[in-house]
Design a protein around this nucleic acid. Sequence first.
DNA 1: GTAATACTATGATAATTATCAGCTTTTACC
DNA 2: GGTAAAAGCTGATAATTATCATAGTATTAC
Lengths: 230, 230
Amino acid sequence: MDRSRCENCIVRQFNSLRALSKEELKKVSDSKTSKTIKKGQPLFEEGEKLNGVYCVRDGVSKLSKLSANGKDQIVKLASKGEVMGQRSVIAEEHSNLSAVAVSDMEVCFIPKDSITTSLQKNPNFTLEVLRHMAHDLKEADDVIVNMSQKTVKQRIAEAFLYLKNNFGEDGDGFLALTLSREDIANVVGTATESAIRIISEFKKKGLIHTSGKKIGIEDERKLRDLAEGF
Amino acid sequence: MDRSRCENCIVRQFNSLRALSKEELKKVSDSKTSKTIKKGQPLFEEGEKLNGVYCVRDGVSKLSKLSANGKDQIVKLASKGEVMGQRSVIAEEHSNLSAVAVSDMEVCFIPKDSITTSLQKNPNFTLEVLRHMAHDLKEADDVIVNMSQKTVKQRIAEAFLYLKNNFGEDGDGFLALTLSREDIANVVGTATESAIRIISEFKKKGLIHTSGKKIGIEDERKLRDLAEGF
DNA sequence: GTAATACTATGATAATTATCAGCTTTTACC
DNA sequence: GGTAAAAGCTGATAATTATCATAGTATTAC
């Protein structure tokens, strides 16, 4: 079985491409190109015109937006199965976000033509994309509320729980996705020093343990209570 | 001309319902009910199961989410032409937001059946809804960045500019949409007292003028500079 | 292997924002 | 039209968070 073909790609099960017909999928597969992206490399930049979407086969990318004060706000972390750049292609706008790999990645670039024609002809696919976007919008609403109503401490606690739930742990009990302290700060929207300070505090309190950049969750219950505001 | 019919409703031009066929529109119009909502009254509550969507003919509604600390975070203000509850109906989930009128409203309630059948059968409509949601998602991303990277002062300045751009001014140079100080605080995600203090400060500096609850923009340029961080 | 560079860490201090308390003004309602 | 309730306002203070400075530690490049 040729795993480089979309038809045989497991990742597809997780995203809206599964609603494509056999013929459509064949067309997509014929037009796509595979890319390997090293950790730290950009996939696309804010303001760039996207000629297609990126389907993540492996690895994780941060989607961020530069704010006026020069800091990057990470809006989302996209991993296996997620399609990046959909929003911009659908709205026919330049990208509002930058995408940079936070781990080595394997992605497929799908030119927008095959996407847009399917969007116009296959209601099932369009509806599937719509459902995904509805979900993303809900998540975005939740992020807005968390950002504006929770303290930095709560947001960091929540971020660790999020990382565990979405990316899991390695064999040694550390979070499988290792982010730099700066990236963690940019996820929760705070200064790097503040993030580091709170991480130290969590460590002292036995909520987490660390080894270099790696972070492991020690007391999930307490972390959750903290995130909820108790 | 019967203006109570969707076919003749101008508001429709602003939202995705314009992509419906004549027959679909007729069906929607036959099944919809018109409602008058007084300022302060709820349209629906967070967690409620929505059996349809609300199309705003007149007035403004706040869409908010209760946070753990008991404060309401206003995520969006919906006015003429906007469709509320779409996201929940599409995702087949309970609403993640509450909707409360911030001015007297006229809305049409459209049962979800006519929406979902059109979503399955009319790709143009689905695509139109998708485009709108893509736009909402971009706006949500922008809000996330503003919330996490800007100071309360900047966010309030921005909120006033937003109110002017989206709802305009009355004959006397006041913002057409009058929000309570508490609502303003809930839009920018701060304590009511902090919002009031900053409003007083803006007044002293000649950026705005007030009369009771009403707020008028005095120096748009300076307000914009402030919002941008200068 | 070592120098250069980026990342992590911590202290001191300043700025921002929240909270609590008390007061005045406005609004709503009988 | 009077009164209770709600909303608006201000001061004092505490808590949170950012900023600046500095130093240790890890990574990378040559």
